[in-house]
């Protein structure tokens, strides 16, 4: 399926939920976050589209965009990279999520979403509704802050403080 055919198929079904389409390079469709689960299910289950493979989900902190005065006023983007093994086409879906907002989990469509969404929760603090096991995945469970946010410093003493709390250090005899 060509890019235009994919756009057409999605647009006919989800006219109101689409916020923007960019087909200059990789095909990107921006959707409203409230419809994310239904749209993903539509993309995965419609035979002509056949997006059966979830390559990746990742978060993006748009803090700098906001400070530059970009149109989108949401703090985060959740970006889904999906692929069709039979049709061999790729698609990028984006949904904007603000701070203190949550987005529906797509775990019921692709099981692989479980860990990807945990990683986003860990790194950005974005909460996924209806997720079966939303815990931190890479960092310790009692870690403070979300490192991939743009306002989280590159060099910090958070780690050292965490270690001090955790470890019983060597006591000289």
């Amino acid at each position: 399926m060509s890019k235009q055919e994919i756009i057409k198929a999605v647009k006919t079904k989800w006219t109101d939920a689409i916020e923007g389409v960019d087909d200059t390079r990789d095909l990107t469709i921006r959707v409203k976050k409230g419809n994310i689960l239904e749209i993903c299910r539509f993309l995965a289950c419609t035979p002509e589209l056949g997006f059966d493979y979830l390559s990746d989900i990742c978060g993006v902190d748009c803090l700098s965009d906001i400070s530059r005065g970009a149109v989108s006023s949401s703090r985060f983007d959740v970006v889904y990279h999906i692929y069709s093994i039979s049709k061999k086409h790729r698609l990028r879906i984006k949904a904007a999520v603000n701070e203190n907002e949550s987005i529906n989990s797509v775990e019921s469509v692709w099981k692989a979403a479980n860990w990807y969404e945990r990683e986003i929760y860990d790194m950005f603090g974005i909460v996924f509704d209806n997720h079966s096991d939303l815990r931190r995945i890479l960092l310790p469970e009692d870690w403070k802050g979300h490192p991939l946010r743009k306002d989280y410093p590159l060099v910090t003493d958070v780690g050292e403080k965490w270690l001090e709390e955790k470890l019983v250090t060597h006591v000289p005899v």
């Binding site: 390079r25 990789d26 990742c58 993006v60 790729r90």
Partner: peptide, 29 residues
């Protein structure tokens, strides 16, 4: 922004790079 995947020995290895025009990537997944 671009996503490029290759068939690494272990499977699909992809880089998703968002560029804001500066010499450093804005986000790299």
């Amino acid at each position: 922004e671009v996503y490029q995947a290759i068939e690494a020995p272990k499977g699909e290895l992809g880089f998703y790079i968002i560029s804001d025009g500066s010499p450093k990537p804005y986000r790299m997944k």
